[in-house]
């Protein structure tokens, strides 16, 4: 199996791409921080999938007799002002976080990628118009803009996701454009045009694949920021609505008790820090693997 994967003259397309993943994976796993990142993200995913089995209690079940209990053997992270088990809420909260992250990535990265690639590939007027639009979005602080969108669309988790996605794409469009500019005049693009390929085909089949690796790195590194923005919206009461166990919203509720019952705000805060760190580590590791040029700063 190992020999099959690392063969330098694979016999089929399948073997070639399997080998590529295997090698990239091997490189990634040689970097301790990246391994930490992979473990944390893996943990997040497993937790989200198996939340009902992991969590000892319901995330929304109130029990007013157990209000604001400190961490103990029964309640590992203590309970909140309505007597809900914070550990269970944090576990269920991972689902929301994962959903936010995934949806934002699915919406904004491809959008930014396509806009940036079109802008860079055609240049001229197309470029000026699209980049003007991008600049308008870029010039406003992310959280404020997300706030404005949520205010317009109404509070709620879906609208928060849409708002964050709308504010996130311009940065990706910029990167994709910059990358496209560096090779739009390359001879392999001319060669493909000569084969009779249309502009659309060149953009999607030849230009975009070259932007994706830096995009994956960038999106992974941005995940931390996205989680924080979502938490910020939750904190301001504009994201997930109670009783949804969204981490940001939980911190916001705990704020009132921060001095006496520190665990209410701290536990979800720790979860946010851990997951953000995980994405940062993974992003750095991916950069070393996917982007060998920026790794050795010579």
């Amino acid at each position: 199996m190992h020999a099959w994967l690392i063969s330098d003259s694979p016999a089929s397309r399948l073997q070639a791409s399997a080998g590529r993943f295997y090698r990239a994976g091997g490189l990634l796993l040689r970097n301790p921080l990246a391994v930490a990142g992979v473990l944390i993200i893996g943990l997040l995913i497993v937790t989200a999938i198996f939340a009902p089995w992991i969590a000892p209690e319901s995330p929304v079940g109130q029990n007013l007799s157990n209000r604001l209990l400190p961490p103990s053997a029964d309640h590992w992270m203590g309970t909140d002002e309505l007597g809900r088990d914070i550990f269970s809420r944090v576990i269920y909260g991972s689902r929301i976080t994962l959903m936010i992250v995934a949806l934002v990535a699915v919406i904004s990265a491809p959008l930014g990628l396509v806009i940036g690639a079109i802008s860079g590939y055609f240049g001229g007027w197309t470029d000026r118009v699209l980049m003007g639009l991008t600049d308008v979005f870029l010039s406003m602080p992310k959280l404020i803009m997300a706030l404005a969108f949520v205010a317009a669309l109404g509070p709620g988790i879906e609208n928060a996701i849409i708002a964050i996605a709308i504010t996130a794409w311009p940065a990706y469009a910029r990167i994709a454009r910059a990358e496209t500019l560096t090779f739009r005049n390359a001879e392999f693009v001319s060669a493909t045009r000569l084969l009779g390929a249309s502009h659309l085909r060149i953009i999607f089949a030849h230009v975009l694949p070259l932007c994706t690796s830096s995009m994956i790195v960038r999106v992974t590194l941005d995940m931390a920021g996205i989680i924080l923005t979502a938490a910020g919206l939750g904190f301001l009461g504009l994201g997930a609505q109670p009783p949804l166990p969204e981490w940001g919203a939980m911190i916001s509720r705990g704020r009132v008790f921060i001095l006496d019952q520190w665990w209410v705000a701290t536990m979800p805060g720790l979860a946010i820090i851990l997951v953000s760190l995980g994405f940062c580590f993974l992003g750095d590791g991916l950069r070393d693997v996917l982007d060998p040029k920026s790794a050795g700063k010579s």
């Binding site: 001879e187 392999f188 045009r193 000569l194 084969l195 009779g196 030849h206 070259l210």
Partner: peptide, 23 residues
């Protein structure tokens, strides 16, 4: 460039480093 011409006339470029897609 046109698609029909592609069947009759092709070009090989000066620089073997730049004329193949790196990925």
């Amino acid at each position: 460039p046109d698609k029909d011409l592609a069947r009759t006339c092709q070009m090989v470029f000066q620089d073997p480093y730049g004329s193949l897609h790196p990925r």
